[in-house]
Computed example of a mutant assay.
Amino acid sequence: MIKILLVDDHAVVRMGLKVLLNAVPDMEVVGEASEGNEGIEKALELTPDVVLMDLSMPHGKDGLSATSELKKRLAETAILILTMHDDEEYLFRAIQAGASGCVLKSAPHEELINAIESVCNGNAYLHAAATKRLMEEYLGSVKNDGSDNYQLLSDREKEVLTLIAKGYSNKDIGEQLIISVKTVETHKSNLMDKLQMKTRPELVSYALKKGLLGYGM
């Protein structure tokens, strides 16, 4: 029996996953949590085989930070990131944090079940496109990391950079910093200009290298 812990800030999502997974003969949802800190506490208490971890949770500890901390304290538990983002950058960051893989919330039920079985058996769950992007990022496809220009960023731009790298949307960032979405976009544009970057994946790789997420390359 594969014991599973669900960590997602949406109760409806957790309920749907619980119904789905408990219907699988060799799987059982043993607990639920609505944010990262609670997820860590429940994992330490229940020692599940697999944790399904939401990536973006606006309240409490986010999925990547929780994954990084949980792997240090419960190394044998496999962590599978659940996300609505289809960019390969999120898989790269999840692996860096210690996750065994990443599944889209829009994926078919069969894919989720296969992914859980795979990571429970000690394997990584990667699809072809994500693997290609992961290798490109790991081998240093970003040629200019902007390391000499970090000091040019304002404190607010550094905050925005960190939240972007953690997977938050412009709306989520605005809510956390109590600024408008338009202001978030302005800060993002300014910091990209200063760092001489053009894409979100470049910002994520840079943030990892700078150790802005608490874990790095």
Rank of each mutant, 00 (worst) to 15 (best):
C102N: 10
L44W: 10
A78C: 06
E88S: 14
M84L: 12
E69W: 03
S68Y: 14
L74Q: 14
N37W: 07
L46R: 12
M53F: 05
A78S: 13
M84R: 08
L64E: 03
K61V: 11
N37E: 12
T47V: 13
K72A: 12
K42T: 08
T67A: 03
T83V: 09
T67C: 06
D87A: 11
G63H: 08
G63Y: 05
V50G: 00
K61M: 13
E41T: 15
A78E: 07
S34H: 10
L80P: 00
G39Q: 13
K71P: 05
R93S: 14
M53W: 01
E69Q: 13
M57E: 01
G60E: 06
E88T: 10
D87P: 01
D54H: 03
H59F: 13
E69D: 13
I40F: 05
G101M: 05
K71E: 13
I79Q: 08
H85Y: 13
M84H: 07
E88M: 05
H85K: 08
R93Y: 07
D87C: 02
T67V: 02
T67M: 02
L91Y: 15
A33C: 06
L70R: 06
L64V: 04
E41W: 13
D54G: 09
D49N: 15
E45L: 15
K42A: 15
V50Y: 08
D54P: 02
M84D: 07
A66C: 07
A94H: 04
V51W: 02
G101F: 04
E76C: 03
T83I: 05
E89N: 03
D86R: 08
L80N: 03
A66L: 12
P58L: 02
E69A: 08
C102Y: 11
A75V: 15
H85Q: 14
A33V: 04
E41Y: 12
M57D: 01
S65C: 02
N37G: 15
D54E: 10
S65H: 01
Y90W: 08
V51R: 01
D86Q: 13
T47L: 11
S34T: 09
A75S: 15
T83L: 02
G39W: 15
E88D: 11
G101C: 09
D49A: 10
A66T: 06
E76N: 12
E69L: 11
D86S: 14
E41F: 12
T77V: 14
L64D: 06
D87N: 13
L55K: 01
K61S: 03
M57L: 04
G63L: 00
L74I: 12
L52T: 09
H59E: 15
T83Q: 11
A97S: 13
G36I: 00
E69P: 03
I95D: 11
D62M: 00
E41D: 15
L46C: 09
M84E: 07
E88W: 02
M84S: 14
A43P: 11
L46E: 14
Y90M: 03
M53L: 07
A66M: 03
S68I: 01
T77A: 14
R93Q: 11
L52D: 10
L74T: 14
C102K: 04
T67W: 08
G60S: 06
A33E: 02
L74V: 14
D54N: 09
K61P: 03
M84F: 08
D87Q: 14
E89C: 04
G36A: 06
L82P: 01
T67Y: 06
F92G: 03
L70I: 12
G60K: 03
L46Q: 13
A78F: 05
E88A: 15
D86I: 07
S65G: 10
R73E: 13
E41I: 15
